[in-house]
Design a protein around this nucleic acid. Structure first.
Lengths: 188, 188
DNA sequence: CGTATTTTGTCCACTTATAAACACTTTTAG
DNA sequence: CTAAAAGTGTTTATAAGTGGACAAAATACG
């Protein structure tokens, strides 16, 4: 019930300018060859304005994917997330044109690390709620999960093996939850 | 050769937002029913921002037409302006859809007064260059000229009589210069 | 290899845009 | 006719965007 703080109109404009510019650039150039200078030039904002909102080029990438990664991270929780996952997979599939440019170079690692971070938070919550202390460090497990989730999605998007978005959603739901349950096997 | 002062990037964005919003509104609504509030809402800028750039709704109208009116005002000068006038008439004709909404209500008067003001400046220069002092007050003559120029253009745009843009350009060139020469008839 | 060039990230003083509050006028409706 | 609503235009303190300068890091290249 927290009052949602409306961002200043200028911030909204600046952020959408930057996001739009970034997406447009990714349509044409690979992530690695895009410079911050290109983004601010296309967005028509000052350099200092960019750094007021993002730490780096990686940051704008990760930030713009955070909504998507959240869905993946939540899939380890006991609740049913099939609908969200299906929607996500369909979105990925529709925008698979981006995949070669986004998941080729350094961006791949950035995205996975961001996902791992998001997963780690949720893992810790799960441990807490189950009154269990982890035997393997949580950050390692989070990274493992993140790689497992992303690698198959990336392979799928790059056309290394074809199946439906439904199948992918179901597979990720099942494997994620299974891996996670295994962590708490002692509990039972 | 004066260094052209580049406006701040924010000003450019704000002005084009406001101009764009204004034009879009004129496409749908008549000038008189458009509120300042509508313009700033569509442009997505704050109220105080609007008034930082324009005195009123009339001001944004007149400002956005000033480039066009300049061509008309200059047509009283001895120099050949046929090309500029032709271009202007073709522009008017292409955008004649605006005419009923722009030249119907109070806007008509605003535009004519702005044109008169522009004409008055040029008239005074002409008097000065000819070493003649006006017998009829310059503002009256300017208003007369403005009405003469605009009324035929408006009638034309509203479809009250049809002819080519070329014919209109030629007619305005001739009549404007003729009226103006008549002011200096004693000189010869 | 090293040096030249590009790009990054940070800083600053300054300008602009902002929301909110306000008195005022015009329009709308009851 | 008159109360309410909508719109205008101004004023404030504050937050955001600006360019320019800069050192440091990354990259290109001879």
């Amino acid at each position: 019930m927290t009052e949602v703080e409306q961002a200043d109109r200028r911030i909204q404009k600046t952020l959408s300018s930057l996001q739009d510019a970034f997406f447009e650039l990714v349509l044409t150039y690979s992530y690695d060859e895009i410079k911050v200078s290109d983004i601010i030039k296309k967005a028509n904002v000052g350099r200092s304005t960019f750094y007021q909102h993002y730490k780096s080029k990686d940051d704008i990438l990760v930030t713009s994917m955070q909504g998507l990664l959240k869905v993946l991270a939540e899939s380890i929780e006991p609740e049913d997330r099939r609908d969200d996952l299906l929607e996500l997979m369909e979105h990925f599939w529709q925008n698979r044109q981006f995949a070669p440019r986004v998941f080729a170079g350094t961006a791949r690692r950035q995205v996975i690390m961001a996902l791992a971070e998001s997963l780690e938070i949720r893992l810790k919550k799960l441990y807490k709620s189950q009154f269990i202390s982890p035997t393997i460090p949580t950050n390692l497990v989070a990274h493992q999960l993140a790689e497992a989730q992303m690698v198959i999605i990336i392979d799928w998007l790059l056309g290394k093996g074809s199946c439906s978005a439904e199948a992918m959603a179901k597979h990720i739901e099942q494997t994620s939850k299974a891996m996670c349950k295994a962590l708490f096997v002692n509990k039972y």
